[in-house]
Simulated scan of single mutants.
Amino acid sequence: METLYLWTNQVPNEINEKQYAVKTPDTSNNIVRLTDVTNPILEVFRPDAAKNNGASVIICPGGGYKILAIDLEGYEIAKWLNTLGFTAFVLQYRVPENHLGALNDVQRAIKIVRSKSKGYNVKSYKIGVLGFSAGGSLSARASTNFNKSTYKKLDEIDKVSCRPDFAVLIYPAYLNKGKNNTITPELTVTEQTPPMFIFATADDAYSNKGSLVLSKALIDFKIPIELHILDSGGHGYGLRKGNIAAETWPVLAEKWLKNIIK
């Protein structure tokens, strides 16, 4: 597996030394959890050459900005995207509790992938973000803060746009942190906000109201939006079988993704 390091020298807004991410002892529900990410990376998953559709997706696993559910919402998603023809990049962004650092990381990741697009056979130059739970929050932040410089420019890569061409948010968290459950103030939707696919369930308190709030803001600005809210499914299911939501969203997202990269 190819690994791309986001920051060659000093990591912005990081006080700790660079180190490998740490696996937590919690393996409940057969999930590998990483924490103490201080040297963020992208892990590259390439599709078969015959299937390559010329687009790529940066995957942001969830974990409450405390850990990264790296297999459930990272590697397993990358392999699924490969079957659809996408080059997938699993992002190890900074945790725990470095919200600014996480935003730095996803912005830098988009710039790196865009700057290397020719090398990854990304003929369409369409680069999306796909996030789960807190990773959905991070994907929404990347999609609404791309005009803000959140760290000092370091090199030629930082001259490249960090605007995603599309975003997929699966049970996204923290979208309605405004007063009285309004949209999180940081999420500034404009006419330049990219199209989004949002999936949640009615029984998921982390994402049901927030998904509605963000969708309304997108509709108000006439941004293409596809929203699905299933009646049940809970939270944190990824692609794993035995959960109706986990079996539903990939089918809907596949159709949307194929249309969005045309």
Rank of each mutant, 00 (worst) to 15 (best):
Ala109Gly: 08
His99Val: 14
Glu97Cys: 14
Gly136Glu: 10
Thr87Glu: 02
Gln92Ala: 01
Val90Ser: 13
Val95Pro: 04
Ser117Asn: 09
Phe89Ile: 09
Lys118Trp: 04
Ser117Glu: 07
Ser137Asp: 11
Ala102Thr: 07
Gly131Asp: 08
His99Trp: 06
Lys111Asp: 02
Ser137His: 15
Val95Ala: 06
Thr83His: 00
Val129Ile: 14
Gly101Asn: 02
Ser137Gly: 15
Gly135His: 06
Gly128Val: 04
Ser115Lys: 15
Ser115Asp: 13
Asp105Trp: 12
Leu84Pro: 00
Phe86Lys: 02
Lys116His: 06
Gly135Met: 07
Leu91Met: 12
Gln107Pro: 01
Lys126Leu: 15
Leu103Gly: 01
Ser137Gln: 13
Tyr93Pro: 01
Tyr93Ser: 02
Ser137Phe: 09
Phe86Leu: 01
Arg114Pro: 09
Ala102Asn: 05
Arg94Thr: 00
Leu81Thr: 13
Tyr93Glu: 04
Ala109Val: 08
Gly131Leu: 11
Gly136Ile: 08
Thr83Lys: 06
Leu84Arg: 06
Tyr93Arg: 07
Tyr125Trp: 12
Lys123Arg: 09
Ser115Cys: 12
Lys118Thr: 05
Ser137Ile: 06
Gly85His: 03
Tyr120Asp: 03
Ile112Glu: 09
Ala102Glu: 03
Ala102Ile: 00
Gly128Gln: 04
Ile112Asn: 11
Leu100Met: 01
Lys118His: 13
Asn104Cys: 02
Asn98Glu: 01
Lys123Phe: 04
Arg94His: 03
Val113Pro: 10
Leu81Ile: 05
Leu100Gly: 03
Val122Ala: 07
Thr83Gly: 00
Phe89Val: 05
Tyr120Phe: 11
Gly128Ser: 12
His99Asn: 05
Leu100Arg: 11
Asn82Ile: 03
Leu81Asp: 09
Val113Asn: 09
Val106Glu: 12
Ile112Phe: 11
Ala134Phe: 15
Asn82Val: 05
Gly85Glu: 03
Ala109Lys: 14
Phe89Arg: 03
Thr87Ala: 05
Gly119Ile: 00
Ala88Val: 13
Leu84Asn: 08
Ile112Lys: 11
Phe86Asn: 02
Ile110Phe: 01
Ile110Pro: 11
Val90Met: 05
Val113Cys: 07
Tyr120Trp: 14
Ser137Ala: 11
Phe89Tyr: 04
Glu97Phe: 09
Val90Gly: 08
Ile112Asp: 12
Leu100Tyr: 01
Thr83Gln: 00
Arg108Tyr: 00
Ser137Pro: 06
Val90Trp: 12
Gly136Ser: 07
Val129Gly: 14
Asn121Asp: 15
Asn98Thr: 07
Asn98Arg: 00
Ser133Tyr: 10
Gly135Ala: 05
Gln92Ser: 02
Ile127Trp: 10
